[in-house]
Design a protein around this nucleic acid. Structure first.
Lengths: 202, 202
DNA sequence: GAATCCATGTAATTGGTTACATGATTCA
DNA sequence: TGAATCATGTAACCAATTACATGGATTC
């Protein structure tokens, strides 16, 4: 608590951090991990490739926000496990609660729908059928994750001072999202079927 | 229909088109527009800056997918209006219906929530209150757009061979999305309040 | 024998943002 | 008078993906 007055613990190299940096700090603050593990952890949250993660981790280390520790393993390659420093923790906590940038979601499926009036309604229907399958698969995966998490940490996830609370609400948010898209898709499918039937009769 | 056999209308320079290119073609196929107008049109769909749009339009023109026409205006700067060629239309139609890339949404607010367990629940509550305001504003904007569109084109938007059909379903999808996030936010706010009250008592 | 998982990286390229440049018109 | 809108662009930079490189262990 007196760090900033008495002993500035790290040589603070000021540089602008992007959202990915804060996301990485967030993962590592929950639990120290290697670059490879971070990539898997962020797969659904903020997809990132190894070619981006390793240089970023090196940058964070140079800034004194994380430290690494080489861990030897038998039967697998060794790994370098990163953890957050006190300086990194402060940086992260200071960022949380600032004004977030407006969300941007880019969905190629929607871009295709934008011009789907150039296609036959039957083909658009087929596009939606494929989408339904994708949605169903993703939802099942999320449901099992959520169930497992709730069974394993029934108490922790009631406490907003515990990260399990936020894991729970973030998974359930994604699930809600897919459920809602499913409902919407079905309503569009209904409209398309109605039109196709009407066209066939005349 | 015989273009590819008898008279290939454009010198087809094959190059990979990204989603933005198809999105631009989609906008221009609905109606010819200038670069500046495209940017405004895509504001909510696929945000893009002028510095990206002008070089991209030049590239599409070089590929023979769009053509431009200088339009003089009084009281404002002249503009260059782009429209889609037959080759561009074919390119777009061939792309629609192919396997779309998995959607990626990046939301800084969610990244903040990921590490919000490091903050006081009261402060997290404040973050959500801000979010509610943002959601409410966006929903009102979408609702008025949707209402206007439905009043102006009541017949066109029933026909999936008309682009108004897809404009309607895409706006309503976004509205659904925000409505659902609102409900989720309120459920989280409820949990946070419950915890805060419980903590105060003890 | 081929594919996937574990594990860490570099090089090249594409995608996207920020900053800069210009200039008339309209609105508060 | 200052800000916003209309209008088109370039240069520099940051973010992200693709391709390349290596190599043992495990699974099908």
């Amino acid at each position: 608590m007196k760090d900033d007055v008495i002993a500035p613990e790290a040589p603070v190299i000021t540089a602008k951090l992007n959202t990915l940096c804060f996301q990485i700090l967030g993962v590592l603050l929950r639990q120290p991990r290697s670059g490879y593990e971070i990539v898997k952890q962020l797969e659904m949250v903020w997809p990132v490739k190894t070619s981006q993660i390793y240089p970023t981790l090196a940058r964070l280390e140079k800034m004194g926000l994380v430290v690494s520790d080489d861990v030897e393993q038998q039967g697998r390659p060794n790994k370098r496990v990163y953890s957050v420093t006190r300086s990194g923790e402060k940086t992260l906590r200071d960022w949380v609660g600032t004004e977030p940038a407006p969300p941007v979601w880019r969905d190629e499926f929607l871009t295709m729908l934008y011009s789907a009036w150039t296609k036959d309604p039957q083909q658009v229907l087929a596009m939606f059928e494929c989408r339904l399958k994708y949605l169903d698969d993703t939802m099942n995966m999320l449901r099992s994750r959520l169930a497992e998490h709730r069974a394993t940490f029934p108490e922790e996830l009631k406490n907003p001072r515990n990260w399990h609370f936020f894991r729970d609400i973030l998974i359930s948010r994604r699930l809600f999202n897919y459920e809602q898209e499913l409902v919407w898709s079905q309503s569009v499918i209904y409209k398309l079927r109605e039109f196709i039937d009407g066209e066939r009769e005349s």
